Amino acid sequence: MKILSLFLIIVITSCVTYAQSQEKRIAYLSKTNKEVSGPTAAAYYRTVQEAGEGFIIREYFMPSGKVRLIAECMEYTPEIVYHGTVKRFYETGMLREEKQYDEGYATGVSTEYYETGKVSERKEHQSDDKVLILQHYTPDGRELLTNGHGLIKSMSPLGDTIYAEIRDHVLALQYDVHAGDTVYSMPEKQAEYIGGMNTLMKFLQQNVKYPADARRSGAQGTVFTRFDVGEDGTISNVAPVMNVNSDLDAEAVRVVSAMPRWKPALVRGQVVKSRFVLPIKFRLAGSRR
């Protein structure tokens, strides 16, 4: 009996060791989740492990090595397609968010947590473009929504106060306040380029110039450029959301800064200052990216 027990322990240990060996490091990531060449510039690293017909992606904080993400997916290259359970963690090890995915789309009820372990928010993902805020809780557990209505107040990583107005469980308005200046990231009516999106695309095609150094080095990618549209339609505070390449970033900022005035956003029929994110894609001839 003792011999059999010892044999089982050896077999179980071997299986665990084999499973761990299948977890392969595939990328180093910066704080903005951009892949970097090595650990020096990395804030996280990512591994992949085969699991049935899919994969399990894990991300770890550096240098602590603590788990940041555990996600089931059906594909991980060239893009991750989540399929199954996705869990995100604080570096303390506490669960930050748990969400279900079906072929890349969030589905069902997701839950977010404070670092104390208490629930902060519960959402229901009915479709890719319809998400219901079921309830939001203060750190001490007080409910902020009454019959699906309420105002949620939070802080951005930059220290700005963010307000989200919920109506019938749906995010209706979102704005932040910085030094007394209110900027809407989700107004009732978005700001518009005068003439529409087709006219905007023509402006970009006529004005964007591929930087010579970026072309020679083979740099390409999409620069997501954030900017504010003032109450008079003027463009200000232009900046890339995530850095792609210094030359490409600079060119996107230059062109967006040169745009003519937009039609400003509206809230309750009044013009307001709003924030917009415009993707500008740089792609070299012959590339499939």
Rank of each mutant, 00 (worst) to 15 (best):
L248A: 13
A41C: 03
L29G: 09
E53D: 12
E79L: 09
A265N: 10
V229A: 12
E251S: 01
R283D: 02
T182K: 11
I80V: 15
I166L: 08
T138F: 00
T13P: 02
V277F: 15
Y18G: 11
T47R: 00
A258Q: 07
I162A: 04
Q100D: 14
T17S: 06
Y44T: 14
G93A: 02
L95I: 07
D168F: 03
T138A: 08
P139Q: 06
K153M: 14
I12G: 02
Y90L: 06
D128G: 13
Q20S: 03
P63L: 06
Y210K: 05
Q20R: 11
A258M: 13
Y210P: 01
E231Q: 14
E103N: 15
M201H: 09
F55A: 10
Y101I: 08
E121S: 04
Y137V: 01
A51R: 09
Q205M: 11
R289A: 06
D247T: 03
I56T: 12
A51V: 04
V255C: 07
D160K: 10
V67E: 03
T111N: 00
L29Q: 03
D249L: 11
L171N: 08
S236I: 04
D160Q: 07
T146I: 08
N198C: 03
L134W: 13
I9Q: 09
E112C: 02
G180H: 02
E124P: 10
A179C: 01
T225I: 00
F7I: 11
I3W: 13
H125I: 09
T222D: 05
I26H: 00
V36K: 11
R88V: 02
T47N: 02
D228R: 08
H178M: 07
Y137D: 00
Y113C: 00
M94W: 00
R261F: 05
R275Q: 14
R261C: 14
I80F: 09
F282E: 01
Y90I: 12
A258I: 13
S236H: 01
A71K: 14
S257D: 01
E97T: 00
L248P: 10
P157D: 12
G218L: 15
Y44E: 07
L278Q: 15
E251T: 03
P139I: 11
P187G: 05
S30Q: 15
I56E: 05
P211Y: 02
Y114F: 15
K87M: 11
T17L: 05
G54I: 08
P240V: 14
I162K: 03
L266H: 03
M242N: 08
E115P: 06
I56A: 02
L278Y: 15
F55C: 12
E72L: 15
M155R: 04
E50P: 14
I12E: 01
F227M: 03
G230D: 07
L69E: 06
F227S: 04
D128R: 08
V183T: 00
Y45H: 00
S120F: 05
E23D: 08
Q49C: 06
K87A: 10
V208I: 14
N245T: 00
N245W: 02
S257C: 02
K99M: 09
L173W: 10
F276Y: 10
I166G: 01
M155F: 10
T161G: 08
A239N: 13
S21V: 12
S21Q: 05
Q190A: 13
M94H: 04
K189C: 11
G148P: 06
I9N: 09
